[in-house]
């Protein structure tokens, strides 16, 4: 029965992750720790594997449609994967409570940033290429680091950063983020896997759900308007911030 609940968790995480380019870690880590009583390090490792699955499915659809900026994705993923590896290696030595509180603050700042009217105007403008790539590279390094420590895709930072700093429209940012978070999470997932911080069958059940959920998310993202997409994204960030803060205090 537990496997069925894990598949449903994966389904939900995959759907949300693919729709918003988040990776689904914001659902998987709290679900595994709060509902299934899995230790946080194993929850993070399991989440990273699921993030790779979400990203793969979403990346296929986004690549076929040409919505993802492939070159931007590879550029940022290089920095993010470097950060994820260091994050994965450091995770054993950093108190989880500090990270949870710090991350909840980052989430709230990002959520507030997303609601600014000036930013909203950028959503559907014409897009040629991203600007301020060097700044984006540095921020991707930080996003990857957080991804490796917390088991979150990094889209939480990548998408607002791509929009606000690199002037990338929201839908291209989510598609590019979906494409690159798998590349980011994969090396960190290997570190957790080789360290034994992944529950094999819980991961398998969640991956099964994420495959289906992310396919649904990628398909539906075509039909949802940018405004609705943004509002849902803000709500997800606020909710996750609350969960992280409660866990850290």
């Amino acid at each position: 029965m537990e496997l069925a609940y894990l598949v449903i968790t994966g389904l939900l995480a995959g759907f949300v992750g693919s729709l918003f380019g988040l990776g689904g870690g914001i659902i998987i880590v709290p679900a595994l720790t709060l509902i299934f009583n899995v230790p946080v390090t194993i929850a993070v490792g399991t989440s990273l594997v699921s993030i790779v699955a979400v990203s793969t499915v979403a990346a296929i659809d986004y690549l076929k449609s040409g919505r993802a900026d492939l070159e931007l994705g590879i550029t940022l993923a290089a920095a993010a994967s470097l950060g994820a590896v260091t994050g994965g290696l450091l995770a054993e030595h950093i108190p989880a409570r500090i990270i949870y509180v710090f991350f909840s603050i980052i989430l709230l700042i990002a959520a507030v940033n997303m609601t600014q009217p000036k930013r909203i105007m950028l959503i559907d403008r014409k897009y040629d290429s991203a600007s301020h790539t060097a700044v984006g590279w540095g921020m991707s390094l930080v996003a990857g680091n957080i991804s490796g420590i917390l088991g979150v895709g990094g889209g939480i930072i990548q998408i607002p950063m791509m929009r606000a700093v690199m002037k990338v429209p929201f839908k291209i940012a989510t598609a590019t983020s979906s494409y690159m978070i798998g590349i980011t999470a994969a090396p960190a997932a290997v570190i957790y896997m080789l360290r034994g911080d992944i529950d094999t069958f819980k991961s398998a059940a969640i991956i099964l759900g994420t495959f289906a959920g992310s396919r649904m998310g990628a398909a539906l993202s075509y039909r949802i308007t940018s405004l609705l997409l943004r509002l849902l994204f803000v709500l997800i960030m606020i909710f996750t911030a609350y969960k992280m803060l409660v866990k850290g205090l």
């Binding site: 594997v49 793969t56 798998g182 994969a186 997932a189 069958f201 991961s203």
Partner: peptide, 20 residues
């Protein structure tokens, strides 16, 4: 079953590498 599950998870993790 554990061997198959680990192989499947391994394949998932290595998929982005193949993509890159």
């Amino acid at each position: 079953a554990v061997i198959g599950a680990k192989a499947g998870i391994g394949l998932v993790v290595f998929t982005p590498v193949t993509g890159v």
